[in-house]
Write a protein that binds this DNA or RNA. Structure first.
Length: 932
RNA sequence: GCGGGUAUGGCGUAAUUGGUAGCCGCGCCAGACUUAGGAUCUGGUGGAGCAAUCCGUGGGGGUUCGAGUCCCUUUACCCGCACCA
C-alpha cells in the first residue's frame, strides 16, 4: 500500500475538526502549558512558506507537551486592524471589514492545510467589537489611573483626587508631566477645565501636546517604533516632526520595572539587549546652573532669575564646563536670548525648523549652533560660561539642556572646535589636541576637591557634593518615551471618549464597546480631520466623540490574556481562567517586535497586574525568535534586443539582461521551457541557447516577495509532498532561530524518509504489501535504536532543536529498515515520537495499529538507559593527542586496569618506541590519551 | 561610532558542551532495475597521496595531555541602536 498523503491528511484534518481534538478547558488535575504564536496580520498576499516556520515549531512543542501530560493552551487569532486594509478601502471604497474577513478566510484555509493543533474555539479577531471592548476597557482603566513613584505602581486616580483635596500635589510623588505645585486650597479654587487639565498630567493614558512623528502621506502620526531612519515602517513614506495634541500612554512610568524584570525572562540575550537599549537607563545627576545678567544696561528681560537644569552622567567633569547648550525647542531659548542675539537666534531656529527628521539624520555630524547672549554660573567654580543653542542637544532627552565638557565628550568637542570655545582637560596625561577623551578612566586634574581621584571614585563624590550643596540631585534617566496612542485613521478601535465643553470625558464601562461607525469615505476630511469626523449621528448626547482611533499595538497588547477566556462578556479574563493559565510559557515570533509589541505588551500586563486583574508580572516567560525564510530567486538571461535566452553557464559570451523568472517553473535550477513560453505572451516564440540540452537558470537569495517571483506557496508543497513533509522539511532546514533561504531542492530527502517510515509497517521496509506488524520480542539491537531515539527526541524538543530530531528519526528509520524490523513494540512508540512532527501519517498508522483514539492522547514513551548502554566501549587511544589505534574495553573496567590493558597491546609498544610514559589521561567512555 | 551575533566539505547543517571533526539531508560519482523519465533502490563521497600517512573548523597567537568549542588579537558578513549628555 502506498503512502497516499493527500487522502490521509484530508481525513485527519477533518477528524480533528469534527472531534474538536484540540479543544482545551481548565483542568486542575493537570499541569498547564501555554504555547503562543504571535498572531498574524491577515494580509492580502496570503501565506508563503516562511510564515508557518514558527507556527510549525510551536505546534510540535504543543503536541509534545500534550504527550507529556500537560494541559496545553495553543490558540490562534488575527491582528485584524491595520493599514493595508484601510489603504485598500480608500482606493476602492470597499469596507475594510470585508477585505479583512476575506483575508482571514484565506489564512484559515492555508493554516488548516498544514495540520496545526490550534484550539479554534478560542480564536480572537482584534477588529470585532466583542474583542475591542476590552481594548477600550483597558484604555479607560489607564485613563483612570496614575503612577505612584513611592509605591512604584499604578493607582486609581480617585485616590489622587482625595490627596489633592487634602494636600494639593505637594506630597505627591508621581510619574507625570511637569505640573506647577499647588495647595489644597488652590485646588479647590480651580474650575472644571483647570482641574481636568491638571489631572491629565497624571493620567496613564493622557492627552498631551507633544512633538510627534507625522507622516503626511499616510495622514497620521506614528509611534517611535513605527518609524525607521525618518521613514514609516509601513509604506516607507517620509516622516516629519510636528507639534500636535495626541493621546499618549505613560509607558515611561514603567521604564525601571520593564528593565529590571527583563532579567528573569528566558529570552535571547540579543532581544533583551535590544529592549535594554531601547529603554536606555543612565545614572547621573540633575544640576542647576544660575543664569547671570549679561547686559545690565538694557536688561529689562533679566529682572527675573533663571535656572537652567541639566542632566549629566559625568558629574565629575563639572570643573571642565566651558559652555552650555540648549536644545532649539527648549523653553529657555526664548527667555535667555538677549536683545543683541535676537536676530541670529531667530534665523537659527528657522533653519532648524526647516530641516526634516531625515535631513537631521543624514547630517548627523554637521555642527551648527548660535549663541544666546546669556551666561550661566558654574555652581562649583562660579565661572561665567556662555549659553549656546544647538540641534545636537535633543529636547526629548534629559532636560533639553546640557553642560558642555569639550575635553571629555566628543560632541561637545566638535562644537567647541567649530565655535572656538575653551577645551579644558581634566584627566592626567590625556591629549585633547586632536580629539576628546571620552573614556571613564584615569586620574582627575584641574578639578578642585576631585583632583587626584580616579574617575570611578570622582563620579559618586561629585554627585554627593551636588546634593550637599543643594544645587541638584541624583537622577536616573530613561531614553524610553511615552507611546503616542492616537492615529488619524478609520480602521482601528475608537476611543471611548467624548468632549464635554472641551473636557475629555470617558464613557462608563457599561457603555462599551463603542463601535466603529459606518462612514461613506475612508479618506481624511477636507479640513484634514480624521475619517471618523465624517460619521453622521455619531455622538454622546450631542457631545462629539474623539475622532482618532487607537494604533495597531492596542489590540495586540493583551490578546494572550483574552485567549484564556475568549467568550467572557463580563471581563477581559476571569480570575479563575487567569489564575489557571497565568501567563505564556512559550511565545514564538519574529524579532521585529522587540521594541514595539513586546514592550507595549509587557507594559500593559504590568499595568493590569498593578490593578489586580492579572496574576503574573510578565506576560511571556520564554520567547523564541524564529528566523526569516528568504526567497531563492531564479533568473533567465535574455540577449539584448532579441528574444533569445542563454543558459546561465554561457551568459558571459553574450550581452544579456537578467530577468526574474517564476521559481515555480524551475526545478533544480533547470527551466521548464514549455511553461516559460506560456508564462507571458512575449516569450511564446522565445529561442534558447542550452547547455547539455538543458536551460540552467541563475539564482540569488532575496527577500521572498511577489515582485521577485520567488514566493513559494505552502499549499503547493502540501499538494505535491503533503503537510507532514512540509512540516518536517521546514524543521530540517536548520535551527528555528536562524534565518535561511528556502530551497525546495532538499525536500525530496525528507519526503523519502516518510515513505521509508511508512514502508516499515508494510513488511519491515521490504515491500508495498499489506499492513503487517509482528508481535515478536524486539532484539537488543532494535531496542537500542528505539531508546536512543526516545532520548534524543526528548532532549532535542526541550531544547528547541528540531533539525537534529529530524535527523535522528532518519537514522533510526534507516537502521530499522536495514534490520527489516516491523515489530509493533518498536514501531508503535516511534509513531508517538514522530506524531508532533508529522501528525497526519502518525494518526493513520496509529489507527492501523488498532487504536481508536487520536495519537494526541497517547503518552510519550519512557527512555530506558539500559537498552542503549553497551557493556564494552571502544576507546580511541592517542599518543600526545594524536589518535593512533582503537581498543575495546569492558565498560566497568577500572582506570588502573585500563592503563595496564592499553600498555600491554603490541600497538602501544610500536607507538611508544621505548619512550617513557609521563602520564595517561582517561576520560571514561570517551578517550585514552598517553602523554610521553 | 556603540552594542549583539555569526564564520565548519560544492551546499543546508551536526558534534554527548574541552575528548575520534564532518551525523542527517541536498548535490555529485558508481552500480541495480528498467531502458533515456525531474521515478525507485544499493554503495561511495572533506582535501592531498598508489600507500603508510599528512593536512584540515575565516587569519594569527595563547591555555591544555587534548581546542570547532575556552582566552587574546585580527578580518569578513549579518542584525539592532544611533548626536541619549
Amino acid at each position: 500500500m502506498d503512502y497516499n498523503f493527500n487522502s490521509i491528511e484530508q481525513k485527519w484534518q477533518r477528524y480533528w475538526a469534527e472531534n474538536k481534538t484540540f479543544s482545551v478547558k481548565e483542568d486542575a488535575s493537570k499541569p498547564k502549558y501555554y504555547v503562543l504564536d504571535m498572531f498574524p496580520y491577515p494580509s492580502g498576499a496570503g501565506l508563503h512558506v516562511g510564515h508557518p516556520l514558527g507556527y510549525i515549531a510551536s505546534d510540535i512543542y504543543s503536541r509534545y507537551k500534550r504527550l507529556k501530560g500537560f494541559n496545553v493552551l495553543h490558540p490562534m487569532g488575527y491582528d485584524a486592524f491595520g493599514l493595508p486594509a484601510e489603504q485598500y478601502a480608500i482606493q476602492t471604497g470597499q469596507h475594510p471589514k470585508i477585505t479583512t474577513e476575506e483575508n482571514i478566510a484565506r489564512y484559515r484555509r492555508q493554516l488548516d492545510r498544514i495540520g496545526f493543533s490550534f484550539d479554534w474555539e478560542r480564536e480572537v479577531k482584534t477588529c470585532e467589537p466583542s474583542y475591542y471592548k476590552w481594548t477600550q476597557w483597558a484604555f479607560l482603566k489607564m485613563f483612570g489611573s496614575w503612577y505612584n513613584n513611592t509605591t512604584d505602581m499604578a493607582e486609581p486616580i480617585s485616590e489622587l483626587l482625595l490627596e489633592f483635596e487634602k494636600n494639593g500635589n505637594l506630597k505627591v510623588n508621581a510619574a507625570c508631566t511637569e505640573t506647577a505645585p499647588f495647595t489644597a486650597e488652590q485646588w479647590q479654587g480651580f474650575n472644571e477645565q483647570q482641574k481636568s487639565a491638571i489631572l491629565m498630567n497624571y493620567r496613564l493614558a493622557y492627552l498631551g501636546e507633544t512633538s510627534v512623528n507625522w507622516c503626511p502621506e499616510l495622514g497620521t502620526v506614528l509611534a517611535n517604533d513605527e518609524v525607521k531612519e525618518g521613514f514609516s515602517v509601513r509604506g516607507g513614506h517620509p516622516v516629519e516632526q510636528k507639534k500636535m495634541k495626541q493621546w499618549l500612554l505613560r509607558v515611561s512610568a514603567y521604564a525601571g520595572r520593564l528593565l529590571d524584570d527583563l532579567e528573569k525572562l528566558n529570552w535571547s540575550d540579543a532581544l533583551k539587549e535590544m529592549q535594554r537599549n531601547w529603554i536606555g537607563r543612565s545614572y547621573g545627576a540633575q544640576m542647576i546652573f544660575k543664569v547671570v545678567n549679561p547686559e545690565p544696561a538694557d536688561g529689562s528681560k533679566f529682572d527675573k532669575e533663571y535656572n537652567i537644569e541639566i542632566f549629566t552622567t559625568r558629574a565629575d567633569t563639572v570643573f571642565g564646563v566651558t559652555f552650555m547648550v540648549l536644545a532649539p525647542e527648549s523653553e529657555w531659548v526664548e527667555k535667555l536670548t538677549t536683545e543683541g542675539q535676537q536676530e541670529a537666534v531667530k534665523e537659527y531656529l528657522n533653519y532648524v525648523k526647516k530641516k526634516t527628521e531625515r535631513e537631521r539624520i543624514a547630517q548627523t555630524h554637521n555642527v551648527t549652533g548660535v549663541f544666546t547672549g546669556s551666561y550661566a554660573l558654574n555652581p562649583f567654580t562660579q565661572e561665567r560660561v556662555p549659553v549656546w543653542i544647538s540641534e545636537y542637544v535633543l529636547s526629548g532627552y534629559g532636560t533639553g539642556a546640557i553642560m558642555a565638557v569639550p575635553a571629555h565628550d566628543s560632541r561637545d568637542y566638535a562644537f567647541a572646535k567649530k565655535f572656538n570655545l575653551e577645551i579644558r582637560p581634566l584627566i592626567e596625561g590625556c591629549d585633547v589636541s586632536e580629539e576628546s577623551f571620552d573614556a571613564k578612566e584615569g586620574v582627575m586634574i584641574n578639578s578642585g576637591f576631585l583632583t587626584g581621584y580616579t574617575v570611578k571614585e570622582a563620579i559618586p563624590m561629585a554627585i554627593e557634593e551636588v546634593e550637599k550643596r543643594a544645587i541638584g540631585h541624583r537622577k536616573v534617566n530613561y531614553r524610553l518615551r511615552d507611546a503616542i496612542f492616537s492615529r488619524q485613521r478609520y480602521w482601528g478601535e475608537p476611543f471611548p471618549i467624548y468632549y464635554k465643553d472641551g473636557i475629555p470625558t470617558p464613557l462608563e464601562l457599561t457603555q462599551l464597546p463603542l463601535e466603529l461607525p459606518e462612514i461613506e469615505s475612508y479618506k481624511p476630511t477636507e479640513q484634514g480631520e480624521p475619517p471618523l469626523a465624517r460619521a453622521k449621528n455619531w455622538s454622546y448626547n450631542g457631545y462629539s466623540y474623539e475622532t482618532s482611533t487607537m494604533p495597531g499595538f492596542a489590540g495586540s497588547s493583551a490578546y494572550y490574556l483574552r485567549y484564556m477566556d475568549p467568550h467572557n462578556n463580563e471581563c477581559l479574563v476571569s480570575k479563575d481562567a487567569n489564575h489557571y493559565w497565568r501567563n505564556v510559557d512559550l511565545y514564538v515570533g519574529g524579532t521585529e517586535h522587540a521594541t514595539g509589541h513586546l514592550i507595549y505588551s509587557r507594559f500593559w500586563n504590568k499595568f493590569l497586574f498593578d490593578l489586580g486583574y492579572v496574576a503574573e508580572k510578565e506576560p511571556f516567560k520564554k520567547l523564541i525568535n524564529q528566523g526569516m525564510i528568504q526567497g531563492r530567486s531564479n533568473f533567465v538571461y535574455r540577449v539584448k534586443n532579441t528574444n533569445t535566452f542563454v543558459s546561465c553557464g554561457l551568459k558571459e559570451k553574450y550581452d544579456t539582461t537578467e530577468i526574474h523568472v517564476d521559481v515555480n517553473m524551475v526545478y533544480n535550477d533547470r527551466l521548464d521551457i514549455e511553461a516559460f513560453k506560456k508564462w507571458r505572451p512575449e516569450f511564446e516564440n522565445a529561442e534558447f541557447v542550452l547547455e547539455d540540452g538543458e536551460y540552467i537558470c541563475g539564482w540569488a537569495i532575496e527577500k521572498m516577495s511577489k515582485s521577485m517571483f520567488n514566493v513559494v506557496n505552502p499549499d503547493n508543497i502540501c499538494e505535491s509532498y503533503g503537510a507532514d513533509t512540509l512540516r518536517l522539511y521546514e524543521m530540517f532546514l536548520g535551527p528555528v532561530e536562524m534565518s535561511k533561504p528556502w530551497d525546495t531542492k532538499g525536500i525530496d530527502g525528507v519526503h523519502r524518509f516518510l515513505k521509508k517510515f511508512w514502508r516499515l509497517f508494510f513488511g519491515g521496509g521490504e515491500g508495498t504489501g499489506e499492513f503487517a506488524l509482528s508481535e515478536d520480542e524486539p532484539t537488543a539491537e532494535e531496542l537500542k535504536i528505539l531508546h536512543k531515539l526516545i532520548n534524543k527526541v526528548d532532549t532535542d524538543i526541550e531544547n528547541f532543536s528540531f533539525n537534529t530530531s529530524v535527523s535522528a528519526f532518519m537514522v533510526a528509520v534507516n537502521e530499522l529498515g536495514a534490520l527489516k524490523c516491523n515489530k509493533r513494540r518498536v514501531l508503535e512508540p516511534i509513531v508517538i515520537l514522530l506524531s508532533p512532527f508529522a501528525p497526519h501519517i502518525c494518526e493513520e498508522l496509529w489507527q492501523m495499529i488498532g487504536h481508536s483514539e487520536s495519537v494526541s492522547f497517547a503518552t510519550f514513551p519512557i527512555y530506558h538507559e539500559k537498552f542503549t548502554v553497551e557493556d564494552t566501549v571502544e576507546y580511541p587511544v592517542s599518543f600526545n593527542g594524536k589518535t593512533r589505534f582503537k581498543i575495546t574495553l569492558p565498560k566497568d573496567m577500572g582506570k588502573g586496569d585500563m592503563e595496564k590493558a592499553v600498555l600491554a597491546t603490541p600497538e602501544a609498544a610500536k607507538y611508544l618506541q621505548g619512550n617513557a610514559v609521563k602520564k595517561i589521561v582517561i576520560v571514561p567512555g570517551r578517550i585514552i590519551n598517553i602523554v610521553m
